[in-house]
Design a protein around this nucleic acid. Sequence first.
DNA 1: CCTATTTTGTACCATTTGGTACATAATTAA
DNA 2: TTAATTATGTACCAAATGGTACAAAATAGG
Lengths: 194, 194
Amino acid sequence: MAGRPKIFDEQEVIAKASNIFWEKGYEAASSEELLKAMGIGKGSFYLFFKGGKKELYEKSLKQYANNLLSSIRKDISESDNPIEYLKKFFFQLADTTNIHKAKGCFMGNALVEMATKDEYTKQLVAGLLNELEIIFINTVEKAKEDNLLMTNKSSKLIGSHLLNLWNGLNVTRRMDADDASLEALIKFNLEILT
Amino acid sequence: MAGRPKIFDEQEVIAKASNIFWEKGYEAASSEELLKAMGIGKGSFYLFFKGGKKELYEKSLKQYANNLLSSIRKDISESDNPIEYLKKFFFQLADTTNIHKAKGCFMGNALVEMATKDEYTKQLVAGLLNELEIIFINTVEKAKEDNLLMTNKSSKLIGSHLLNLWNGLNVTRRMDADDASLEALIKFNLEILT
DNA sequence: CCTATTTTGTACCATTTGGTACATAATTAA
DNA sequence: TTAATTATGTACCAAATGGTACAAAATAGG
């Protein structure tokens, strides 16, 4: 294989672009700052991302989501009490020291921005969030089987509740409520997991 | 008072601009389409909105929110069962025939878009959403006094839960879930009002 | 060492952006 | 009728946008 060698790794530059997109959203992230963050020039970028900014955005969302989902799946499968894991997962949203506090959920942000702007991307993001919901549902279902959880509510209902809680908290916490209020709110919404 | 007469009403043009901002967000709403929707030219616009697009956006948010809040307060004060009113208020979010289904909540959208972009506007919107929360809290509090509601949870907790539910549903329903699932989700989250 | 191949960096570009300048139109008060 | 005042419409503008063209650089194989 001849040719000048690439100076970047695709996954790495996508990860760097993700941070910009997550913080600023699609439109507000200029290609200039994206390129700067990625550390590559326009020549290379448009050679490897023929779809331009939109392609980069979609790949950012997919990669970020898949990493997150994989990480959660792994943690749950390794946990001896998945319900407790879920609780911690939500309580982290009340932690002010969390770096990502003001950024919300990358997928949720994208859903809001793309909902009226780009049907394809919206469906893509909706699918990713759906995968998170499925994780919730499966985790709850298995916990029931393992007698870790007693409830007459369906796993589907609880899973959809958890996803909606996730979506809501990622908006609500941007109102700068104090940690204690958020914690009480989360605790209340997780009583179903008791 | 001398001078050429105005051809527009400020509140009316703000309302028209609100529809564009609500649907597209701040950045994606171009001044061209805003002006077109408002039916006025640049000359008039920049004369009355010295702050330009940003001022228009903020006034749109304030006016929309104040109208909504006033309307809700009025409905509640006239209702003989405010708790039932609240339930209907939420169940409308599961109605597909609702015109605004895909648009989410104007304030929630703005909070997401402005959170990392403009601290002032973010605080403004957070304040407006807070007013909605206060309505929830006061309504619940009064319902308790009137024995319309029995619960050992604080009104503040329930109010914050309702606001978070509102925020969540306005994101979640953009995933195009079917009405029945959304209804079940809402029903579950409103059991506290039973 | 030369050639084919692949990547890189930069100069360039059309379009769109929000916003301004200013002449003109439409009023009222004197 | 005229002068002062206020609103309107349009021509214009600098800056920023995402994207393209292309020459130069860096490699591998022959």
